[in-house]
C-alpha cells in the first residue's frame, strides 16, 4: 500500500488547516481542505478519502448534520474535532457514526495515532463472523466465551465477557456507553448507566489483576470506554 493516505479535513479555521497540512507534509499523506460542510461533502465524494477529519463547529451547517448526510452514502472513517465542553456533541457524533474524536488542542502524534486506528478498523469492518478476537496479548474465544491474557484465562461473567468483546473489537477506539448498553443489554436498558458502571468496574479490576504493559480499559468521562493494548 504505497498509495499516500488521502485525508479530507472539514474545518473553518485556516490556522488549524495550515498546521494539519504541515503535519502531513512528508508525502505519506495528502490533505484536502474544505472550509464549509457542503464543500467538504463534495470533496469527499470527489476524492474518496481514507479518513475524514470533521470539525463540529462549522459556519454553514452543524457538523453533526454533515456527518448524518455523509453516513447515508459512505462508510469512510470519520474523526470529529471538538472543543472542550462540547461533550454531548461528541457523544452524539460517536453514536451518529463517527469513529473517534479529538479534543482541541491536540498534538500531531495523537492525531496520527487516531488516523491509523480508524483506518485499521475500516479494513476489518466485519466482526460478526470472527471466532476469535486478538488485541495485543488479549485473546477472546468467541465460541467458547473464554478470555485469556497470554494463555491465562480470565474468570469473567457472561456480561463482562460481552463487554470485553465489544471493546476488543474496537481496540484503541472509543466506545460510547450507549453503544455498550444497547449491544449487551438491549434497547430497554439504554439508561442503566449504574449497572454498566458496576460491571465495567469489575471488569477493569479483573483485567488490572492480569495487566501487562499497556493493556487496560480507559474511561473517557462522559463519553465511554477505550481498550488500550
Amino acid at each position: 500500500m504505497n498509495d499516500p493516505i488521502r485525508v479530507v479535513v472539514i474545518e473553518d479555521e485556516v490556522a488549524i488547516r495550515r498546521f494539519l497540512k504541515a503535519s502531513f507534509g512528508d508525502g505519506e499523506a495528502e490533505l484536502h481542505e474544505a472550509g464549509t460542510g457542503s464543500e467538504g461533502l463534495t470533496l469527499i465524494a470527489r476524492k474518496n478519502p481514507h479518513v475524514v477529519l470533521l470539525d463540529l463547529g462549522l459556519p454553514d451547517q452543524d457538523g453533526l448534520a454533515v456527518l448524518r448526510e455523509l453516513r447515508t452514502w459512505s462508510n469512510v472513517p470519520v474523526i470529529v474535532l471538538t472543543a472542550r465542553g462540547q461533550d454531548t456533541d461528541k457523544v452524539a457524533a460517536l453514536d451518529g457514526g463517527a469513529d473517534d474524536y479529538l479534543t482541541k488542542p491536540f498534538s500531531v502524534a495523537e492525531l496520527m495515532a487516531r488516523i491509523r486506528v480508524a483506518m485499521r478498523h475500516a479494513q476489518t469492518s466485519d466482526h460478526s463472523a470472527q471466532t476469535a478476537i486478538e488485541a495485543g496479548l488479549l485473546r477472546l474465544d468467541m465460541a467458547g466465551h473464554i478470555a485469556s491474557i497470554e494463555g491465562v484465562e480470565l474468570a469473567l461473567t457472561q456480561i463482562e465477557f460481552k463487554l470485553l468483546a465489544i471493546l476488543a473489537q474496537n481496540v484503541d477506539r472509543v466506545v460510547t456507553q450507549r453503544h455498550l448498553l444497547l449491544e449487551v443489554w438491549g434497547p430497554a436498558y439504554e439508561d442503566s448507566t449504574h449497572t454498566l458502571r458496576v460491571h465495567m468496574a469489575n471488569l477493569r479490576n479483573k483485567l488490572k489483576a492480569h495487566a501487562r504493559e499497556g493493556l487496560k480499559i480507559q474511561t473517557e468521562i462522559g463519553i465511554g470506554y477505550r481498550l488500550r493494548q
Binding site: E13, A22, A83, K104, P105, A109
Partner: peptide
C-alpha cells in the same frame, strides 16, 4: 482565546517533530 491556542499548540507540535 481557545481557537488560536489550539492552532498554536498544534503548530508547535508539528514543528517539534
Amino acid at each position: 482565546l481557545r481557537t488560536p491556542l489550539a492552532s498554536i499548540t498544534g503548530s508547535a507540535s508539528v514543528l517539534e517533530i
